[in-house]
Amino acid sequence: MCKEAGCGCCAVTVTSPSSDLGKLETYSVQSCVTPLYAVDGWQINTIEGIGSQKKGFHPIQERIAKFNGTQCGYCTPGFVMNMYG
């Protein structure tokens, strides 16, 4: 892990209780700069968790592929998870 959050390939989507409202919030974080002790009680979803060849792809994944939205492919999962979050 780079501990810099520069490329975004480590992006994951988390669902956690909101500190002020007590409701659940979903948003993207860079896992390389998120301390492990901070994620207690969070639900964490990775790129593999939202879609795959076996389960079927998420609409975001399908559109990126359909419209050639990838670069080298290394940071594409980060693009998807940021859009998903």
Rank of each mutant, 00 (worst) to 15 (best):
17 P>H: 11
78 G>E: 04
28 S>G: 13
83 M>I: 15
84 Y>I: 03
69 G>I: 12
57 F>T: 05
76 T>R: 04
76 T>A: 05
50 I>M: 04
23 K>T: 08
14 V>F: 05
75 C>M: 11
50 I>A: 02
6 G>V: 05
84 Y>A: 02
11 A>R: 00
72 C>E: 13
27 Y>W: 12
76 T>L: 02
50 I>D: 00
71 Q>S: 09
77 P>T: 06
36 L>P: 10
76 T>I: 01
19 S>C: 08
74 Y>R: 00
22 G>F: 06
39 V>T: 14
44 I>L: 14
43 Q>M: 12
19 S>R: 14
27 Y>P: 04
27 Y>C: 06
80 V>A: 01
83 M>A: 15
33 V>G: 01
79 F>T: 01
75 C>I: 03
5 A>W: 03
63 R>D: 15
34 T>Q: 10
43 Q>C: 09
27 Y>E: 09
39 V>Y: 01
72 C>F: 11
5 A>D: 05
60 I>L: 08
47 I>H: 02
55 K>R: 15
25 E>V: 08
4 E>C: 05
52 S>R: 09
3 K>C: 07
51 G>E: 00
15 T>R: 11
58 H>Y: 09
66 K>P: 06
79 F>W: 09
13 T>G: 00
63 R>Y: 15
62 E>H: 09
75 C>N: 11
77 P>A: 05
80 V>K: 03
17 P>G: 09
15 T>D: 03
34 T>H: 00
17 P>R: 15
16 S>E: 07
70 T>R: 00
45 N>K: 15
42 W>K: 04
39 V>M: 15
39 V>G: 06
76 T>V: 07
77 P>N: 02
48 E>R: 12
56 G>L: 11
60 I>G: 01
55 K>N: 14
4 E>R: 04
19 S>E: 14
72 C>I: 10
78 G>H: 05
32 C>K: 03
27 Y>V: 08
71 Q>G: 00
82 N>Y: 06
20 D>E: 10
3 K>T: 10
39 V>W: 02
49 G>N: 09
38 A>R: 09
71 Q>M: 10
24 L>D: 14
47 I>C: 07
52 S>C: 07
9 C>G: 04
44 I>V: 15
16 S>R: 13
31 S>F: 04
37 Y>E: 13
1 M>C: 08
15 T>M: 10
41 G>N: 07
85 G>I: 04
77 P>V: 02
69 G>T: 12
11 A>N: 02
54 K>R: 13
45 N>H: 14
